[in-house]
Every structure is written in C-alpha cells, then in structure tokens.
Amino acid sequence: MTEATATDPAVPLLAVDNLRVSFRTARGTVRAVDGVSFRLGHREILGIVGESGSGKSVSLMAMMGLINDPNAVIEGSIKFQGRELIGLGAREMRRLRGGRIAMIFQDPMTALTPVYTVGRQIVEQLRLHTDLSTGAARNRAVELLEAVGIPGPKDVIDRYPHQLSGGMRQRVVIAMALSCNPALMLADEPTTALDVTVQAAILDLVRKLRKDFGSSVILVTHNMGVVAEIADKVAVMYAGRIVEHADTPTMFRTPWHPYTWGLLDSIPPISGARPRRLSSIQGAPPSLQRLPPGCSFAPRCQYRSRRCAVKPPMIGEPDHRVACVLEPGERREIVRKPAQQNDEIPS
C-alpha cells in the first residue's frame, strides 16, 4: 500500500467536468451541484470555500460515489487517474474508497458507529485494505492515533465514540482516512472542530501526507486562514457552481468575483481594532429550486447590471478564472479594507 502509484504526470490526478447533482424532492428539483469543473494535479492541495449549502459536501460525496439517495441524479464526468468514476461498478468503487481515495466527513460527532470502540473501527478499515493481522493493525491504529495528536492513544483506542470530545472524534476520523495513505484525500472541514494548536498540527500532517506519499488533497473549509496557510489553489463556490478559481496568493491579493470580495470582507480580524459589527453580504443565498436565470449571485450583488441576466461563463486566464461579467477595469482594487458598517439581518 505504501508505494506511490506509477502515474502519468500529463494526466491530472482528478479531472471533474461539468459535474451536476440534483435531488428530486416533493417541492421540485434541488440543483445542489450545477456544473462544477476543475482539475487537480498530483501533490496539489485545493481549498474549496463558499456559502454553506453551495454544494461543497455534495460534490465531494459524488467523487466518493457515496450519494445513495434514490432521488439523486448525477451527471458529468469525474476522472480519477484517468478512470471514469461515474457509473463505475460498486466493487471497483469500493476498492478505491478508503484505500486510494479517502474522505473525512464534516460532522465528527455522529461519524463513528456508537457501539464499537474507535480502535475496532480503525482496525476494520486497515484489515480491509491491507494484509495486516488484527494485532498488527491494532498497533498501527495506536500509531495513527498518536500521529494525529491524540493523548494517551493506548487508552483511547478502547473507548467508545461518546466518550471522546468532538475534536478527538474528528482526529479519529482523520486517522482512519490517513490509514491507507490515500492518493487523494477529500477533507470536508477537517479542522472545524479542533482548537488552533491541534488544527496547526493536522495541517502539518496533511503537508506530510503530501510530502511522503505524494497525495493530493481537496480541503473544504470555512476558515480563510487555513486556506491561506495550506492550499495551493482555491475554488470559491456559490449556489452549486465554482465562481472563482485561482492560486492562493492571487485569490487573496486580487480576487475578481464580488462574492469572493464579500467573503474576504466578512472575516473577523484577529488583530487591530474590533469592528462594532462584522461586514457581511446582503441578503440570503437563492433557493436551489428556483435559481435565478442569469448569475445566481445577482440578487445580492452591488455590481449587477443588465449583462448579468445571462449565465456568466468562466473567463479569465488559465490560473485565474471567474464566472462574472465584470471587465478587468470594473473590478475592485484592494479588498482587505477595514470592515464597514453594513448589515442586513432584520431585527
């Protein structure tokens, strides 16, 4: 399991093209993912940020083949190491899952089976993808727990999930995902439940995973600090689409999309004066059953014009693409200005 797979550098590790996921519900079709395309290179860390409910988790879930909802319709293409995953047989998909592709889920509190000790759950995965004996797998599980910074791993391994704090559970899940040295790791808000020192340690672990095993990582997070710290590239999602995609310094220095501007403005400052109120984006995200015909951000956008009534295509340069009609001259120059006093929460 440990050797890196022979890979053709010309083929990206992951190529997603026009991925669409919709759910048929009693109240109409929910377009959770609405045409997502991107490439992920070898050893690359892609950060995905965006509105809650913009389809980040659903996209990752689609890549894992884990959308089981009978009302879900998945279209488009997801190529992993040149191999199409959509429509792949259950058996082959299973072999990839947990082995070549691993996933860390968003909600650590409920992610573990309540009736088994965490050790047993890690061992289960190791035994599935490696030839380790139960004893050896157990030792490896202790090592993994240690690697993710769990205190007293020999104790914790025999505990049940409810006996661990949220952060500890999350680290158990991370340990599981790391256990088979995946080529691609999908991490859905892996550090949200963790304190900043452990978060820093986990990010180090992700870097190490890339360094030692050449893994690529997709990291969904709400924490812009984490993105700035670890991601090579950033994709910003809004209402089921990637609205901006750039390498990290560019995204923070010269973002092009008004939604990205709003996001960056909303970050509470960690030093300097505390604003009386945080700035945030006007209005609420659109209902995914009734997306506006043109740019889905239009109802909340201060810069909208008649041009925005048709869906803006992805434009820009190869390493900085944006789905917005604003011309280069119309884009905002400096983003990180002090937060202003606007707010829209009715009270």
């Binding site: 299973r94 082995g99 996933m103 992610a111 573990l112 995965q125 993808h129 899940v173």
Partner: peptide
C-alpha cells in the same frame, strides 16, 4: 441514514457488511 453508515461505506466496506456490522 446515519452519518456513521456513510463513514463505513467510505472505508470501502461491502454493503452487506455495512448493513450487518454497523
């Protein structure tokens, strides 16, 4: 429908084992 079932699947467990063990 529980989250832990999703994790069990994400591990690569066959569906029968997901059903019975978890």
């Amino acid at each position: 429908q529980e989250d832990y079932i999703r994790l069990a699947r994400a591990k690569g467990l066959p569906e029968a084992q997901v059903l019975i063990r978890h």
